[in-house]
C-alpha cells in the first residue's frame, strides 16, 4: 500500500461493501423464497425444514448486512442499518445471485435450486473462514456449520426424489436442466471480487467450480439423474445478479418483502 493514492483505501471499502451485499442479499432473497413455503410444504416436517433453512439464511444475511452498513459508515460516514438495506433498496441495488430469486416452482425445483446453492455456499463459506478480514472470517465460521446441515438435507432429497417414482424422477430432471444455466454466475469473478481476492478478503469463487461439479455429479449419479452439460450461462459475464442485473422475478419478491416498510416508513414491532 506504499504511496498509494488516497482513493485506494476508499475503493477497498467500496468493493468490500459490494461483496458483503452479494453475500447478504443472496441469503435474504433465498430466505424469502423459502418462507413462501410456510403452510404449503408437502408434509409438515418439510414445511418446518424449509423454513428452518430459510431462518438460518436470514440470520446469516442479517450478519452480512449489518457489517455492510458498518463498512459503509466507515467509507462514507453514513451507514445504513440492516433493515434499511433490506427494506429500502430497489431491485437494481440488490446484489444477489439470479438463481436464488427464481420462483419456487414445485418441490423439485425448490430442492434443486437449494442443492445447487448449498454446495456452492458450503465451499464458499469454508474458504471465507480464512479471510484476511477478521469479521468476514468470523461470520463465515458461524454460518458454515449451519450450511453443512443444509447440504445434507438437499442431498437426501435429490437422491430420494431422483431415484424415486417415474414422476418424481421426471420432475427432478426437468428442474436440474432448467436451473443449470443459472449456476455459472456463482463462480464468475468480476473486477470487484478480483480486487478483494488479491487482498485476501474474498474467496476465489472460480476455484470452487471444479469441486462443486464433482460433488454435484456424485449426488446426481446416486440419484439416477443426468448431469447437464450446457455451457451457456446466464449472467456469468459481468452482467448478472451480482452486478445488479436481475430477472423479472426479483421486483415481485421485493414488493412483498418491502411492502410494510415502504407503506409505513420506520414501523416497528
Amino acid at each position: 500500500m506504499a504511496d498509494a493514492v488516497p482513493p485506494v483505501a476508499m475503493t477497498g471499502d467500496d468493493a468490500l461493501l459490494d461483496y458483503l451485499l452479494r453475500l447478504g442479499d443472496s441469503d435474504v432473497v433465498l430466505a424469502q423464497r423459502l418462507g413462501e413455503w410456510v403452510g404449503h410444504g408437502p408434509v409438515l416436517e418439510e414445511d418446518i425444514a424449509l423454513t428452518n433453512v430459510g431462518l438460518d439464511l436470514l440470520g446469516q444475511g442479517r450478519m452480512w448486512l449489518t457489517y455492510a452498513g458498518e463498512v459503509e459508515a466507515r467509507s462514507c460516514g453514513r451507514g445504513r442499518s440492516e433493515d434499511q438495506l433490506a427494506f429500502l433498496r430497489d431491485g437494481g441495488a440488490y446484489r444477489n445471485l439470479q438463481l436464488v430469486e427464481l420462483p419456487n416452482g414445485d418441490f423439485a425445483a425448490t430442492m434443486v435450486r437449494q442443492f445447487y446453492f448449498d454446495h456452492m455456499h458450503l465451499s464458499l463459506l469454508r474458504a471465507l473462514t480464512g479471510s484476511a478480514d477478521a469479521r468476514v472470517a468470523e461470520i463465515a465460521a458461524k454460518a458454515v456449520k449451519e450450511v453443512a446441515y443444509h447440504v445434507e438435507r438437499s442431498d437426501d432429497w435429490v437422491i430420494r426424489l431422483g431415484d424415486g417414482t417415474s414422476e418424481s424422477h421426471m420432475r427432478m430432471q426437468q428442474a436440474v436442466d432448467r436451473l443449470w444455466p443459472y449456476t455459472g454466475e456463482m463462480f464468475a469473478v468480476d473486477a470487484i471480487e478480483s480486487a478483494l481476492i488479491e487482498t485476501g478478503i474474498a474467496a476465489d469463487a472460480s476455484a470452487l467450480r471444479e469441486p462443486w461439479l464433482a460433488a454435484i455429479d456424485a449426488v446426481l449419479a446416486e440419484a439416477t439423474l443426468t448431469p447437464p452439460t450446457g455451457e451457456w450461462m446466464q449472467g456469468a459475464h459481468g452482467r448478472g445478479g451480482k452486478q445488479g442485473i436481475h430477472t423479472e422475478h426479483l421486483g415481485h419478491l421485493l414488493a412483498e418483502l418491502q411492502f410494510l416498510q415502504r407503506a409505513y416508513p420506520g414501523a416497528q414491532w
Binding site: 416436517e45 418439510e46 418446518i48 425444514a49 428452518n52 438460518d56 446441515y149 438435507r153 437426501d156
Partner: peptide, 13 residues
C-alpha cells in the same frame, strides 16, 4: 431420522 429440522433450528426429528 424423520427430518433434519425439528421444532427449532437446533433440533432434528
Amino acid at each position: 431420522l424423520l427430518s433434519q429440522f425439528g421444532s427449532t433450528a437446533c433440533k432434528a426429528q
